[in-house]
Amino acid sequence: MNIMPMLIRRELWEHRFLWVVPLVIAGLIVIAAMFPHASVQIDPEDIATPEKYLGLFALFHSAMTVPQFLLLSVLLPYYLIDCLFAERKDRSILFWKSLPVSDAQTVLSKLLVALAVIPLGVFVLTLFTDVAATAILAVRFHGAQMMGAFLRWDLQTWLRTQGLILAALVMLVLWYAPLAAYLLLVSAWAKRSAFLWAVLPPLAAMLVEKIAFGTHYVAALLGYRLSGKVPIGFVGHAADKAGSGGEHAAAMIERLKPLTALANIDLWLGLAVTVALVWLTIRIRRHQTES
C-alpha cells in the first residue's frame, strides 16, 4: 500500500500556510492587474528592437513569479523547523506512532513536501497567475498602443522564460537540500526552542573560529551555500554590459545557466550531506516520543 500521498496530504492539513499564503499572493497579483496603475511607463526605445522587446517581456513575466519563490525561502525553513518539533510538543507523536507508518516514511514525507510538492506546486500556481494577470492587462490596455505592443504574446519566449525559472528552481532545491535536511534534523532533535537551535550553532561556530583562529572559513562556507549563485548559474557580472532596460534584461537572462550547477561538485557533495542528515533524522525520530 502506498501511503505517501496521504502523508503529504497530512502535512498540508497541518501546515496550511504552505498553500494558503501562495494562493493569497497569487490572488493579490491578479487583483492588482485589474486596477489602474499610473507608474507603468515604457520608453518606446526599450522595445524598439525584437531583442529588446523579448528581454523586457521575459523580465515582466519573471516579475510575476519570482516574488512567490522569495516567499518560499521564508515559509519552507519555518515549516522544516516546526514539523518534527510540533508533533513532540503537542504529544501527537504518540498518536502517529500508534499507526503502521515508519519513521523513514514520516521524515521523507516532510522532506518531499518542502523540496518537491510545495516548490513545484507554487511553480504551477505562478504559471496560472502569470497568464491570468497578463490576460487582464491585455484586455485593459487593448487600445493603448505602447502597452498593447508590450503585451503582445510571444509563446516561445514565454516558454523559454518559464523553462529557465523551472530549471533554476530545481537547481535551487537541490542546492538548498542540505540546509533543509539540517533544519529537519534540528526539528527532530531539539527539546525546546528549535528555532534557536537551528540558528545558534552556525553562529557559535563562526564566533569560535573567529576568536580561536581569526579565520572565516565557516562564515565563507555558509555564505557560499546560502547564496544562490551556483544553482542559478549566473555567469559574469551584472554590470558588465551597460545598456537600456530591454537589452540589459535580455543580456541578464542570456547569462543565467542554471543547469551548469549540475557540473558543480559542491552540488553533489551537498546532496551526499543531505542523505546523511536525513538518515540521522530518521534514527533520532525512532527513539523520540515526546519532549
Binding site: 501527537s92 504518540l94 507508518v101 515508519s102
Partner: peptide, 21 residues
Amino acid sequence: RDSLMRDVCFIADVAVLPRWL
C-alpha cells in the same frame, strides 16, 4: 515498530490527537 503496528494499537495516555486535526 511500523510493521508491528498493523496488529497492535494503543492509546498512550489521553488526548494525544493533534489539535488541528
